[in-house]
């Protein structure tokens, strides 16, 4: 157990070095949610905000509505980077070397997960900062902030493990990137940008039942200081747990299988 912690710390240091040497890719990943935020708030936000109800909300109402969805896009975009980094790692001989060493096997993966978690949390802080700059006014209590950070962290851990699985399952770097792309689109096909009840029946059903919607709803409530239904909160956390467990199990199985067969 102590060995696993020590090896994971070593792999985390390796991961942080990698990140410090691929800053341009990290900035690219960070640019996407910021561009989305600016686009939706300044280009579409006036009209969309009016449509949220009442007909007078405008841009200010929309920035409050869209920020949780943008935060989810931030996470999804960043974990796409995780999938790519894992796939890239697997094409290199260094992983074979790690497998011939007396180290905790899973540490290769936990290094990626911990590195990505730090990367995502930093990205979320930047994006939230931009949102505040353009008029996002969170009304969360201290407890609400804590819960919001907790939910964002849980979502990140879940999606990172899923992305690690994608990176391992893909045979190429491009394949890993493609596998992870739908994650960045899910907030759009949920209640991230417009309420689900404004959508046509089939799409609406999907939006209401996909995992990102309850997470975004819960996040919106926590950040704005509005009530969060117990059912929403339970479903949001439940999805995180399920995705995390499936992602972890899948990734571990893929990593431990005999890759040469």
């Amino acid at each position: 157990m102590i060995l696993a912690v020590r090896d994971s710390a070593t792999m985390l240091r390796r991961q942080l070095r990698h990140m410090s040497r691929s800053l341009s890719m990290l900035l690219m990943l960070l640019a996407v949610p910021i561009v989305f935020l600016l686009l939706f708030v300044f280009v579409l936000g006036g009209t969309l905000g009016d449509g949220l109800g009442g007909g007078t909300g405008g841009r200010a109402a929309y920035v409050a509505y869209v920020t949780p969805g943008i935060l989810l896009i931030t996470i999804a975009g960043a974990v796409q980077g995780t999938a790519i980094a894992v796939a890239l790692d697997m094409t290199e001989g260094i992983i074979a070397r790690f497998r011939t060493m007396a180290i905790a096997r899973v540490s290769v993966l936990t290094g990626h997960v911990l590195g990505s978690l730090l990367h995502v949390l930093a990205s979320l802080a930047v994006v939230l900062g931009v949102a505040v700059l353009i008029g996002f006014r969170p009304g969360a209590t201290a407890v609400g902030w804590l819960a919001a950070v907790g939910l964002l962290t849980a979502t990140t851990v879940a999606l990172v493990w899923l992305a690690v699985g994608m990176g391992l399952a893909a045979r190429t770097v491009a394949g890993a990137s493609n596998l992870a792309t739908p994650l960045t689109l899910l907030p759009l096909f949920g209640s991230g940008f417009v309420p689900a009840d404004s959508m046509p029946a089939g799409l609406r059903w999907f939006a209401e039942h996909q995992p990102f919607t309850p997470i975004m709803e819960a996040l919106r409530g926590l950040l704005l200081g509005t009530p969060v239904g117990t059912a929403t909160a339970v479903v949001a956390v439940g999805w995180c747990v399920v995705i995390a467990l499936v992602g972890y199990g899948w990734a571990k199985w893929l990593y431990n299988r005999d890759r040469t067969r």
Binding site: L3, R6, D7, T10, R13, R14, R17, H18, R21, S22, E92, G93, I94, I95, A96, R97, F98, T100, M101, A102, I103
Partner: peptide, 27 residues
Amino acid sequence: GVTGQFSAVDDFLTGEENLLLMGDLNH
């Protein structure tokens, strides 16, 4: 110790960092 036909070197790390990584993993 294993040296493969295809180099198992971490391209993002310097030569020295690669060796120190191995040192850490050898505890």
